[in-house]
Write a protein that binds this DNA or RNA. Structure first.
Lengths: 263, 263
DNA sequence: TACTTGGTTTCACTTATTAAAACCATTGTT
DNA sequence: AACAATGGTTTTAATAAGTGAAACCAAGTA
């Protein structure tokens, strides 16, 4: 193999740590895995994998499942996440505005960011209505089929948006899902132009969603806020009003984050 | 120093990973820290700390705060935690029983485990009552002043319980908090004898709590369930009934976890 | 402009991680 | 009961990988 010291794994990445992180992610994806399974997935010798496991286990980052003796993520993760959420300036800044939206419309209000090419919900105020469809905090959705995802993507350089699209493959989830890059490209343009994104049954039949992007003090998209619910509550007659309020809320959050709109 | 190859840091711990984990925990505790602050806290050279940071950052485990450029935990943590919670057999097993308790009494129902010597709440069903005091999932409390903590500790070998006590210092939080090991020891004995723990305003004035331990299939305490609320709802006349139900619920969970009580 | 602070990069040194292999404990099979 | 199979634990020499000193750079500030 070309060992010209080349194919640098980012040159400064500490490989041991990287393996440990991969191991953690594997456990997150697959639930619980045995030493041998992890050995194979990591493509590392058993003893190395073992030492990584020991290290993580001693610190409570992973535990051993009581039933099958396999390894799984430890409760420690929960402590970390709580600190993270509590100090997330985006979440803090958004909460008050989200509450206002929730009170005004009674529908579900979501706050999401882009992580690993997917929309990750970091806060959700549940709808008060009997007919509701709610994700939970920490759950993920494909970006191309959600209001939040499109709102965020619309504010990224086109290059980045295309990479996202390639990465997720633009899978169709309903008849309305945008499944081709060309159409998505145009859609993002439209979203950018009007300042908010619509999801018309693109991820779930019968559900609609209006989303607007939130910017940080450097003017970079940080996430998006959305209002979502059963489609009969998002009729053509109501959309203008809802969109205006969602955009207002998102802008208020951006302002709290230190974003000062140019002119 | 005696460098006889001795004072082995657990011999098999991978130090680089250990440092990375420490860094993560530091960020969880302190919120956000700069490279230099982390360098000092870890007592490592700047470049080493830097490489650790880079590695974690590339993987989304830590982010950079937009405001001050300091490092903080990344949203990725949330994804990990969600998977963890979803697959936690304890939480899954407990949820149904917790709901029943919640419906029956309307008070707050908690599920907690012991992590790093503290009670960590991994599920909470909020009270329906106007006067309520609720922790949030992921928050922590000292074990000696909570029903859950005492319920769990009562099932540990005395040695372990004493270590816990030493570690947390048995700080007094209210007039009722048990502040001495001797008294706590006796209390744990009593808890063990009757099968449930009481917290009578030991952590917050005016609040009471009844907790019972949950065991895994090896018969080891895995956590505890509790019902908590304003003290007037936990009067002497009601305690027997509540305790019986909480114990019943906890036992049901233990059974779901595979625990078969001896005889 | 010079000074400070905090982040980024380099590189020779050497320690800490690797990987192969042996070991052990448990479980299931004949 | 003996045997193989499975999965986890421990050892060790070889060396790849991480360290740490120091230089560098960029941004802010006096």
């Amino acid at each position: 193999m070309d060992k010209d010291l080349a194919d640098k794994p980012d040159r400064y990445t500490i490989q041991t740590i990287d393996k440990a992180l991969t191991l953690i992610e594997l456990l997150a994806e697959r639930g619980s895995l045995s030493l041998i399974e992890l050995t194979e997935l990591l493509d590392q010798p058993k003893s190395s994998t073992y030492r990584i496991i020991l290290t993580l286990q001693n610190r409570g980052f992973i535990d051993r499942d009581d039933e099958d003796g396999k390894y799984c993520l430890g409760y420690k993760q929960l402590m970390l996440t709580r600190s993270m959420l509590e100090r997330s300036s985006l979440r803090t800044a958004a909460l008050a505005e989200m509450k206002k939206l929730s009170e005004r419309y009674g529908d579900t209000v979501n706050l999401g960011v882009l992580v690993d090419g997917e929309v990750l919900y970091i806060e959700i105020l549940e709808s008060q209505h009997p007919l509701r469809m709610t994700d939970t905090v920490g759950s993920r959705s494909p970006f191309h089929a959600t209001g939040i995802g499109k709102a965020i993507a619309s504010q990224l350089p086109e290059e980045e948006a295309r990479e996202l699209a390639e990465r997720c493959g633009l899978k169709r989830l309903t008849a309305n899902t945008i499944g081709e890059w060309d159409r998505l490209r145009a859609e993002l343009e439209a979203v950018r132009a009007r300042g908010y994104a619509l999801d018309d049954q693109e991820i779930v039949e019968g559900a609609r969603c209006v989303a607007a992007p939130v910017f940080n003090l450097h003017g970079k998209v940080e996430g998006a806020i959305s209002l979502s619910g059963a489609m009969h509550r998002f009729g053509a007659d109501k959309l203008d009003d809802i969109a205006a309020q969602v955009v207002l809320a998102a802008n208020a959050v951006s302002r709290k984050m230190g974003y000062r709109q140019i002119e």
